[in-house]
Design a binder for these strands. Structure first.
Length: 336
DNA sequence: CCGTAATGGACAG
DNA sequence: TGTCCCTTACGGT
């Protein structure tokens, strides 16, 4: 269940593990047999992310370097990539040791306990319904449960990208420049009366934001999620873009989402109001493929899945309702 | 042990 | 609006 930061991290991992290599592509589950046959034996020449979309570019020969076919993958709600490697130095670096989560599922280096000897490495048998297996020189990547997985042409890739909004994690924002991307987002939100909390979930308005970043960026900007986009000052919308660029980039670096400032965490010495007694708690959880522990998940968010708990700043119970088909969380006091 | 929600989104009707 | 994708962690029993 990734948001954009996870997919960009995945693109980086594919780049590190596989780009420049001839790959064996198969579909152990069988449902992607035709697509796998198209890519099998080709060279991976690119790994890109735009919002929650992952694009892996293939070419017949390394020399060309221009992708002729693209594998488009969208993980959706419970898709996952599982990686295993032979323990050689570069792979250990890329996968992380001793274990690491990517996408959503746990990743375990499959080699013996002697890193560096990958000569007779055999990839592990696929576990579960593996739609696609990519096998490179030193590692294997298995895809399970995706919403989308297809082989497309460069033209079809361009058509998919044309439907996506600007992405704060792309170097040029997906609009040629960071300034143009920011302006595009502001203009798009303000030309509609649709509630800003709904627009943030629209991948044509901004690509890569999901339910966690939606709730958290609105809280940090003190914006009422139900406010029509047209009524939100441009400075506040632009400020949310800038904040998302920081938060999501931090998410890429950490491998998980943290939006709280240290002074607002329970252990930060802040004036955190006491928890209401007797309420059943349901702790949030999230993807975490980075090193755990720096900020525990209970401390990572201001409002996401904290309904009924006191606001970290004002103490008012956090509210929830459905918006855009997902549960929205916000503070009715701070986000008046 | 079982039921359910979950960081999404495509598609049918 | 409902279905699919078909996994996983968690809470309640």
């Amino acid at each position: 269940m990734p948001e954009g930061h996870t997919v960009h991290r995945l693109a980086r991992t594919f780049h590190d593990l596989f780009v420049g290599q001839t790959l064996r592509v198969s579909s152990p589950q069988g449902r992607f047999a035709d697509g796998a046959a198209l890519l099998d034996g080709q060279v991976l020449v690119a790994a890109e992310a735009w919002g929650k979309q992952l694009f892996l570019g293939f070419a017949a020969a390394r020399a060309g370097a221009t992708a002729e076919r693209w594998l488009r993958v969208h993980l959706g709600m419970y898709g996952a990539w599982t990686f295993a490697g032979d323990g050689s130095a570069d792979v250990v670096h890329a996968i992380g040791a001793p274990r690491r989560r990517i996408g959503e599922r746990e990743t375990v280096p499959a080699g013996p306990d002697d890193p560096g000897t990958g000569d007779d490495w055999e990839p592990p048998a696929p576990r579960g319904a593996v739609r696609v297996r990519l096998l490179g020189e030193h590692a294997v990547a298995d895809l399970t449960g995706p919403t989308a997985c297809e082989v497309i042409t460069p033209g079809e890739k361009a058509a998919v990208e044309a439907r996506l909004g600007p992405d704060p994690l792309r170097p040029d924002g997906g609009r040629g420049s960071r300034d143009a991307a920011r302006a595009d987002f502001v203009e798009r939100v303000r030309r509609s009366r649709v509630p800003v909390g709904r627009q943030l979930m629209d991948q044509a308005v901004i690509a890569g934001v999901g339910n966690v970043y939606r709730a958290e960026v609105l809280y940090r900007a003190r914006v009422d999620p139900m406010r029509p986009g047209h009524d939100v000052p441009a400075s506040e919308i632009g400020g949310m873009w800038d904040d998302l660029a920081v938060l999501m980039r931090d998410g890429v670096a950490r491998g998980y989402i943290v939006t709280t400032r240290p002074e607002h965490r329970d252990a930060g010495g802040g004036a955190v109001p006491p928890v209401a007694a007797g309420r059943a708690r349901r702790r949030p959880r999230q993807n975490a493929d980075g090193e755990p522990g720096a900020v525990p998940v209970e401390e990572a968010f201001y409002v996401y899945r904290r309904d009924g708990l006191p606001c970290r700043v004002c103490g008012t119970p956090v509210l929830t309702r459905e918006l855009a088909g997902r549960n929205l969380y916000w503070c009715g006091t701070c986000q008046g």
